[in-house]
Every structure is written in C-alpha cells, then in structure tokens.
C-alpha cells in the first residue's frame, strides 16, 4: 500500500465514517507494519481531540435584545392582536366602549321623529316644542329633531339636538330675543360627534354620581 496516496486517504475516510469493512482491515494491516503511517494516524486523531477541546464561547449579554431592536417593524394587525391577548381586561373595556359607541350611533339614526325628555305642561305644535308662559320646567330638558320656543321658565340645562331655539320678536321693540328664561346652560348639538360626546359625558357623570 502506498503510504501518502492510499493509506492517508483511507485514514480520512475512516475519520468520516466512510470506510468499508474491507478497507478498514487493509488500513489496520498497513498500520501494524508502517510506523510512519501509525504516527500520521495518531497525529490526525489527536488533532481532532485538540480542536474539540476548545472552549465554548457565549454571545454578549444583550445580544438577543439588540437583534430584536434592529428588526424591521412588523405588520400592525399582528401587533394589535398580540396586545389584545396580553391585556384581556383592557380589551374587554375597549370592546365595551365600541358597543356603547355603536349603541349611541344607532340611537342617533333612529328616525327623525321629535323626541322630548319632558312632556308635562309642554305644548307641541308640529316639530316645535313650546314652553308656555306660565310653565316652569324643573330640571333639564332635551329636545331632539325639533325646535324649542321658551315663553316660560326652564330651571335646568337645555340640550337641543338637530334643532334650534326659536327667538320670537318682542312686541313693540322689534328685537329678537327669547321671552322666556333658561336658568341653565343651553347646548346645541348638530353633529353626530357632539351627540356622542354628549352621551359619553353623561355616561361618565353617571358613573361618578353612582
């Protein structure tokens, strides 16, 4: 057997686990009689032991965090989904809020018929609500989808949704003014956004009052 060509080749095949039984016997027989190849084989095996003995190193302390910080931004939808999963209470609150908002929304869309919060002693003509001269409304008044004429007194806040306060000319003076009296704040709501805001305010107020 040729030492450098054949024997060394067989040694490497042996180290790769590629040696047939036949060739393994051939190599062993050669090694028994060739000191040079014995030495060569010993050195090869020792080399591998030495390579395998080198220490294992660890990545620097913040390695993972640094990688994560340098990744491109992920898809937003996934981010939200994970956030919801991580914060179930807040998610429940958010869902409740959405339902509440959509409730308000459908309330807004409930036709255009006139709605008045208090009917006692009030006069309704078409889409106009009249507070007669001798009447005092105690508490807040809400008029939706209609106009309001105040000749009497309202001891509370007035909210007008999709409507306006009709000012009647004062006899003889030609001035536009409301004859009656509103002893509270007057609020006009013409936009759905404001309508929602109004609901949210009263919702929150109710919570605190409760």
């Amino acid at each position: 057997m040729n030492c450098d060509k054949e024997a060394v080749e067989l040694m490497h095949n042996y180290l790769d686990g590629d040696l047939t039984k036949e060739n393994e016997t051939a190599l062993r027989l050669h090694l028994e009689e060739c000191e040079k190849c014995q030495q060569h084989f010993h050195e090869l095996k020792r080399t591998l032991t030495l390579i395998r003995s080198t220490e294992h190193v660890s990545a620097p302390a913040n390695f993972t965090a640094n990688v994560m910080n340098n990744l491109p931004a992920e898809k937003k939808s996934v981010k939200y989904k994970r956030w919801f999963r991580a914060h179930p209470m807040l998610t429940a609150a958010a869902i409740f809020f959405v339902f509440m908002m959509s409730g308000i929304f459908s309330a807004w869309n409930q036709g255009s018929e006139l709605v008045v919060s208090k009917q006692d002693n009030l006069v309704i003509k078409g889409d106009t609500v009249i507070v007669p001269e001798d009447v005092t409304v105690e508490g807040d008044l809400i008029v939706k989808n209609g106009n309001l004429v105040v000749r009497g007194t309202i001891d509370g806040n007035v909210t007008l949704v999709n409507g306006k306060l009709i000012e009647e000319p004062i006899q003889g003076e030609g001035l536009m003014a409301s004859v009656g009296e509103v002893n509270g704040e007057l609020e006009h709501i013409d936009q759905i956004f404001e309508w929602m805001w109004f609901h949210i305010k009263s919702f929150i107020k109710n919570i605190f009052d409760f």
Partner: peptide, 24 residues
C-alpha cells in the same frame, strides 16, 4: 411567518451562542 415578531425572540435566544461562536 404569520408575522409574530416576538416569536423570533425565542429563536434568537436559542441560537445566539452557537451563531456568535461560529462567527467568532
């Protein structure tokens, strides 16, 4: 693959030392 970036953190954690060592 579904887009969950945070799952990649476990992957990095698991392979960081091996890959760093290989690069070193």
């Amino acid at each position: 693959k579904k887009g969950d970036q945070s799952a990649f953190e476990d992957v990095v954690n698991y392979f960081q030392h091996k890959i760093y060592q290989h690069c070193l």
